[in-house]
């Protein structure tokens, strides 16, 4: 697969984020993220490369630990969204009839409720936490991929090889796995990366309102804690939390764009 120079660089950057998250999870970097080690809002300096937050905790360590939350939510939520939407869409497209009509009606109904309200509603009902955020994202975002997979499945249902398989008695799980999945692979891959970007942005948004991880610091939470101190000249919390968030989403977005529209294909 050819991603071009920008795509390759973006992919390498994503790999670097994964390494940082793994190192932070193992305690190799940013291990002391909840100890009070400095004066509140101590500026960046030797030993404290990103300064301190409002309570005097090492901001650099907290930013490094935040990578874990973002990557976890991004990966799990995007996979769950794809699985849910893909299965429902594939089922509807292959089976047709009342199953199709039911799935379409369900998709329309879920898509009609503004996603932000769904997200907040799930957070209220399930309580704050990483797993609530992941579930809320998956249960509110599956409609898009469901519609695309359904359209593709309907097109394929009329193909000769699918009808031949059906004539030999293949059921829809077999059709889904053997005939639909290979055709959908490019679409699913691109959508996975786009949902990854979206999930990370949603996590930051929910964390900003205190609904995400309660143990680990998340970038959205860091932004909420110190985002308003910019007017006093305290720039390091805002920059420290938003730079990795922006870089991660930008890298993933570039990869998704290159996957959808490979350089040299035009």
């Amino acid at each position: 697969m050819k991603l071009g120079r920008a795509g390759g660089a973006a992919l390498a950057l994503l790999g670097a984020f994964a390494l940082v998250a793994a190192a932070a999870a193992l305690g190799l970097v940013g291990a002391d993220y909840h100890g009070f080690v400095a004066e509140p809002y101590a500026p960046p300096g030797p030993g404290l490369w990103l300064g301190a937050d409002a309570l005097g905790r090492d901001l650099g360590a907290r930013v490094l630990q935040g990578t874990r939350v973002s990557l976890l939510v991004g990966v799990v939520a995007s996979l769950l969204t794809l699985a849910l939407g893909g299965l429902l869409g594939g089922l509807a497209g292959l089976r047709g009839g009342w199953v199709d009509r039911l799935v379409i009606a369900l998709t329309d109904a879920v898509a009609a409720i503004p996603p932000l309200i769904t997200l907040l509603g799930f957070c209220l009902v399930l309580g704050p936490g990483v797993s609530s955020v992941i579930l809320a994202i998956a249960l509110s975002q599956w409609t898009g991929i469901c519609r695309s997979v359904r359209a593709e499945a309907r097109r394929l249902r009329r193909a000769d090889f699918v009808r031949a398989a059906e004539a030999m008695g293949a059921g829809w799980p077999h059709l889904l796995r053997v005939h639909l999945l290979p055709h959908l692979a490019p679409l699913l891959l691109t959508s996975a990366v786009l949902y990854f970007v979206h999930a990370i942005k949603v996590e930051a948004l929910l964390a900003f309102f205190g609904q995400s991880s309660q143990e680990l610091p998340s970038w959205g939470l860091l932004l909420a804690e110190c985002g308003s101190e910019l007017s006093r000249g305290i720039w390091w919390p805002l920059v420290g939390a938003s730079a990795p968030l922006a870089l991660l989403t930008l890298a993933a977005q570039v990869v998704a764009d290159r996957l959808a529209d490979p350089p040299g294909a035009r």
Partner: peptide, 23 residues
């Protein structure tokens, strides 16, 4: 479009409010 699309709304709003309105 790519830059705007990949920047979290939290960052955009905080930067606009912090820089243009407060600072």
């Amino acid at each position: 479009a790519t830059l705007l699309l990949s920047t979290s709304s939290v960052i955009v709003v905080l930067a606009a409010h912090g820089l243009l309105a407060r600072r």
